[in-house]
């Protein structure tokens, strides 16, 4: 497999791959240097999705991003799903594999959303055990992504940064820093986004995510930001991203746009904006 031609993600912009951008990517990638795919969309047996991926792997470094492992769940990881992930990673030899600090299955039902968990001594042990399990099955280091949160748990005993640092310390995993998620959670839960970035262990960050959100309100009139990956990256998120790069140095940076996916040129514009922040520091 030619995926091994790209053993690491470049410290340049990448985009979340959408099938409608296939032709544009091969002819006019612009500043887009790498691609991220959602692992579960490539777990079919064949057909166009796998054929496109075969072509793309020859041209671009790839990041495989799982959305269904339920690493934050109470139950042990699903052996069948892990085996499918291994098959995909063994085939593609991606530059990176990442998953979320979240859960998405319960009692056999898959809820198709990234759900939150309290940050306690018990959950940190469980998540670390699950990350160990993933890394031993895949035979590679994974990146764990900070979530976007709409509410907090009265039961939490530590901050999200403390939680992620502890999981990384126990497992040796890296971290995927979603700057949009930091901005959303900070707004929704009432902490300072820059304070989060300042405490975040930038040396463990293997990748950054940027995506769009929109604003809603709760029953108390408080602004609640909703993470929908359906808009351009918001200006304050760009500012937070620039501050993050200034602090931690250039990192591979992904533009995520999963809903109301725009024309290719809009993806190129977003990637160019990230490149303008990355390049002076590269």
């Amino acid at each position: 497999m030619t995926g091994t031609a790209f053993p690491i993600l470049p410290t340049k912009p990448g985009v979340g791959y959408k099938a409608q951008h296939f032709a544009s990517l091969l002819t006019d990638a612009g500043p887009v240097a790498w691609l991220e795919i959602h692992a579960e969309n490539y777990m079919g047996d064949g057909g166009r999705p796998l054929a496109q991926l075969r072509h793309l792997a020859e041209r671009f470094a790839l990041s495989v991003h799982g959305v269904g492992l339920s690493i934050g769940g109470e139950a042990p990881l699903d052996a069948g799903h892990l085996a499918r992930l291994k098959t995909l990673c063994d085939w593609l030899q991606p530059a990176s594999f990442s998953e979320h600090l979240a859960w998405s299955t319960h009692d056999g039902a898959y809820l198709n959303d990234l759900l939150p968990l309290p940050y306690t001594a018990r959950t940190v042990a469980r998540v670390a055990e699950h990350v160990d399990h993933v890394q031993s099955v895949l035979g590679r280091r994974m990146l764990l992504e900070n979530p976007s949160s709409y509410l907090a748990f009265a039961a939490s005993e530590m901050s999200e940064v403390e939680f992620l640092v502890e999981v990384a310390r126990r497992t040796g995993c890296g971290l995927l820093l979603d700057v949009n998620n930091v901005f959303i959670s900070a707004t929704n839960l009432g902490f300072t986004a820059m304070g989060f970035i300042e405490r975040f262990p930038m040396d463990l960050v293997g990748e950054i995510h940027l995506g769009g959100h929109y604003a809603d309100q709760d029953e108390g009139g408080a602004v609640v930001l909703i993470d929908n990956h359906g808009h351009p990256v918001a200006d304050p998120v760009w500012a937070l991203y620039a501050a993050t790069i200034a602090r931690g140095g250039p990192k591979p940076t992904l533009i995520e746009w999963d809903n109301d996916v725009p024309e290719w040129q809009a993806m190129v514009s977003e990637a160019a904006r990230a490149a303008a922040i990355l390049e002076p520091l590269s």
Binding site: D113, Y150, A152, F153, A154, N188, G190, D218, A222
Partner: peptide
């Protein structure tokens, strides 16, 4: 119980965001 807004009050409307995400997805 135990799901809260930043001021510690119940996060009922915010829980509905997750309900909505699941149903819409």
């Amino acid at each position: 119980a135990g799901l809260i807004r930043p001021d510690g009050t119940p996060a009922d409307r915010r829980f509905d965001i997750y309900r909505n995400n699941v149903a819409v997805g």
